[in-house]
Structures are given as structure tokens and as C-alpha cells.
Amino acid sequence: MKKYKISTTISYPVKGAMGRTGNWRVFKPILDKEKCVKCLRCWIYCPEATIIRNNDDTVDIDFEYCKGCGICANVCKVKAIIMEREGKKK
């Protein structure tokens, strides 16, 4: 087979290709682990893959990249996630 020389632009996979997208957030998802029933709806629907699925199917949130869309809170049927304004005083 004849080989051709190819020159093209190639990008390589990295986390945060557009920077720390967590900075985009206006509202922050707050997870209450006590309420969570491990249904994994938040995990499968998160558009950013920032719901971390642990080995025991509990979940955590990657705040470095979570964009704060609120989908996880919206799809959680037991209200284990609520959205809170960023920087709100406790």
C-alpha cells in the first residue's frame, strides 16, 4: 500500500480544555448524602460529566468543572440536591 505523508492539526484530550469551567457557575449544586438513594439519575443526565459515580454508587460533585446548570437538582426525585447561589453567606 502506498504511504502518503499527512500533515494536519491534532488536539489531545485534557481535562478543562476550556479552563476551570466551575467559574461559570452562578448557582451551586449542594448534595445531601443522607437523602441520596443512589438512583444515579444525576450522574447519567449531567451534561458535563461532573457528577462522580463512586464504586458504591454514591455520588460526588466535581466543583472544578461543574457549570451549575441545575439539571442534577431537577432530575433528583428525592431532592437530595438543591441549588444555592454561589458565595452565599452561611
Binding site: K15, T21, E48, E64, Y65, I71
Partner: peptide, 11 residues
């Protein structure tokens, strides 16, 4: 899919 892309929130 790796977190931290250019997609809008809720994409």
C-alpha cells in the same frame, strides 16, 4: 467526554 469543555451549561 472530559469535563471542562466549551458546551453551554445544560447542553
Amino acid at each position: 467526554y472530559i469535563p471542562g469543555s466549551a458546551a453551554c451549561p445544560g447542553c
